[in-house]
């Protein structure tokens, strides 16, 4: 059988090491800190010292992810998983098929959600750093570096950002469940063990 005739050989998924340990650690740390800070923001103590420190932790994680997106393994690199509108629509057209995607990494649609999440979190930590809620106890450490009108507006942006992040988190969990129960593809274990059944095309 020649390799130039792939249609006649059904491609079998193979289990590979997909997600590297640092990326998995990053994912679960970020999930924990983001959910923690959503809770602390809404229900935490009035003196929000812990919310601030968790926010600094999120900044460190975002910085790591940015660097990892350029120097990390292939699956972590932005250049590898960011695709054009053509690839996104192609993926979307068969997304609802009742079969596993066997995608080796972030699929073209998932990549958009990765970028949306990282961008939104970056915006969220930025508005947090410059926020002045005029309560004299929870003033962002960089609030004095911007105009006072900006630091007051940042409070509103930070609240809006929190809502948008919550929506993205719920969407993310919803999609993972959609893959698990509709497409019968488990995405959670690969993010824990790093191993996933994939088909590498091309």
């Amino acid at each position: 059988m020649s390799r130039s005739d792939p249609a006649s050989t059904p491609v079998q998924p193979v289990e590979v090491r997909l997600w590297d340990p640092l990326l998995r650690g990053f994912h679960w740390c970020l999930a924990t800190l983001v959910v923690t800070n959503l809770f602390l923001g809404h229900f935490g103590p009035a003196v929000m010292t812990l919310h601030f420190w968790v926010g600094y932790g999120i900044i460190a994680l975002l910085a790591f992810r940015l660097v990892w997106g350029f120097v990390g393994p292939a699956e972590a690199r932005f250049s590898n998983f960011l695709r054009g509108p053509g690839a996104v629509t192609r993926y979307a057209s068969h997304m609802f098929r009742r079969e596993p995607s066997y995608w080796p990494g972030h699929n073209p649609m998932g990549a958009l959600s990765v970028i949306a999440m990282l961008a939104l979190l970056a915006a969220q930590v930025s508005t947090g750093l410059i926020s002045d809620p005029e309560d004299y106890i929870n003033v962002g450490p960089l609030a004095g570096e911007v105009a006072s009108a900006t630091s007051r507006k940042a409070v509103g942006w930070h609240h809006l950002g929190g809502t948008l992040i919550l929506i993205l988190v719920i969407l993310h969990i919803g999609i993972v469940l959609f893959y698990r129960f509709w497409k019968r593809e488990d995405l959670i274990m690969p993010m824990i063990t790093g191993r996933k059944d994939v088909i590498r095309r091309g």
């Binding site: 009035a46 003196v47 809620p133 005029e134 309560d135 004299y136 106890i137 929870n138």
Partner: peptide, 13 residues
């Protein structure tokens, strides 16, 4: 003192 007062500011804001 600031923490006590600030907490009251925040609760109402």
């Amino acid at each position: 003192v600031v923490q006590k007062l600030g907490a009251a500011c925040k609760a109402c804001h």
